[in-house]
Amino acid sequence: MEKINKIQSSGVPLPIEHVDTDQIIPARFLKSTSKEGFGENLFRDWRYNGSNANPDFVLNDSKYSGNILVAGHNFGCGSSREHAAWAIHDYGFRAVVSSEFADIFKGNAMNNGLLPIEVSSAFLQELTEAIITNPSTSISISLEDQTIAFDDKDYQFDIDGFKKKCLLEGKVEFDYLIDMRDTIKEYEQNRTF
């Protein structure tokens, strides 16, 4: 997994609450057996009317660009499909900002080098409005310092310490578990129930 620490970019606003993973990547695109290529169908049914790009959807609005998605409350609810995190990452985003993430999505994102940044509702609203007013608003993220800043505003976000370490070092949980297999065998042998 690629390391993440500092991200500086403009942002793409998607101020919709409760965006579920069926919107992020509809089920009919889950038939692939690889992890690649999901970006082209990211938000497929909001992004396209049939085969034509929907000009009203933010990913088709040339005003907005950058690798930070600024979303609404409870982002990523619903299905556990990791394909949602793959799609957002494959499209080019490296961070998603929201006032709340659904638990499974948050875990999936971090397992794929996509940084979910949880901020207050007030900060999220200010950030969203700033981007809409000035699409070139520069957003600075430091995972090390756990800060996100734009204009003269900044916010200190919480993140699980272990996950932070994984993201900073580009390490995956898998490697820790593999190293634990002897301890796990011991646990199995000592179980009394």
């Binding site: 499909r81 990791e82 638990d103 499974i104 875990g107 999936n108 949980e173 898998f174 820790y176 796990i184």
Partner: peptide
């Protein structure tokens, strides 16, 4: 509980997950 595919791989390989208590 439901898990993502990275975690499916973890369980296949170790029968365990790394979790924080909800």
């Amino acid at each position: 509980f439901g898990i993502g595919t990275s975690q499916v791989e973890q369980v296949l390989a170790s029968q365990c997950l790394l979790l924080s208590k909800p």
